[in-house]
Simulated assay, not measured.
Amino acid sequence: MSPATLQLPADLLFTAPPPGLEPRVDFSLAAIENATGLFSITAADGAARLYVLDAAIHLPDYTPRLAAADLAGIGTDRTGATVLVVVNPGTRSTVNLAAPILVNSETGACAQVILEGSEWPLRAPLNPA
């Protein structure tokens, strides 16, 4: 499936609470209108919301090494996983490349993982497309 036709489940279930959002694991995913590859993730209780980008669309050079155990934890392999990155909106928006969210594109099972090493920054500038 090409990134332009990406379809993700509307309901996401994290295998563990995302850092800073404990104890929440149930979230909904919604595409942002007129912004291809930009989504909001909202906690089921409405108390937390994040913006995320589909890395395949907006960051084609972002190629993190994903651990097989992390992919197995969401019930898929690299081909069935969508990599989302958290956006820190602002005058100079950044994205968190050090801790992507891996989503099983079929089931909505997901996990935010911390990548080993320092190759990918926590706050990478987001350059306009």
Rank of each mutant, 00 (worst) to 15 (best):
M1H: 12
S2H: 12
S2Y: 07
S2W: 05
S2M: 11
A4L: 13
A4V: 15
A4P: 04
L8D: 07
A10W: 01
A10G: 01
A10V: 06
D11Y: 04
D11I: 11
L13I: 13
L13K: 14
L13V: 14
T15H: 09
A16Y: 00
A16I: 09
P17N: 13
P18R: 08
P18Q: 11
P19E: 06
E22I: 13
E22W: 08
R24H: 12
V25E: 08
D26S: 15
F27H: 11
F27V: 13
S28Q: 11
S28M: 04
S28P: 00
L29T: 09
L29C: 06
A30P: 01
A31K: 15
I32H: 06
N34W: 02
N34G: 09
L38P: 01
L38Q: 10
F39A: 07
S40R: 14
S40D: 11
I41N: 00
I41Y: 03
A43T: 11
D45F: 14
D45L: 14
D45S: 15
D45E: 12
G46A: 12
A47P: 00
A47T: 13
A48M: 04
R49V: 09
L50G: 02
L50D: 01
L50T: 04
Y51D: 02
Y51V: 14
L53N: 07
D54T: 08
A55F: 01
A55R: 03
A56M: 06
A56V: 03
L59T: 06
L59E: 02
Y62M: 04
R65C: 00
R65P: 00
L66H: 06
L66N: 02
A67C: 04
A68T: 15
A69N: 10
A69V: 14
A72R: 15
A72D: 14
G73N: 14
T76R: 08
R78H: 08
G80Q: 05
G80I: 09
G80W: 04
G80R: 07
G80D: 08
A81G: 11
T82N: 07
V85N: 03
V86M: 01
V86R: 00
V87E: 01
N88G: 02
R92S: 07
R92W: 02
R92Y: 01
S93F: 01
L97C: 06
A98N: 00
A99V: 02
P100D: 03
N104R: 11
N104I: 10
S105P: 03
G108M: 07
C110M: 04
Q112P: 00
Q112G: 01
S118K: 08
S118Y: 04
E119G: 15
P121Y: 01
P125N: 01
L126S: 05
N127H: 14
N127I: 15
P128Y: 03
A129L: 07
A129P: 11
A129K: 03
A129I: 10
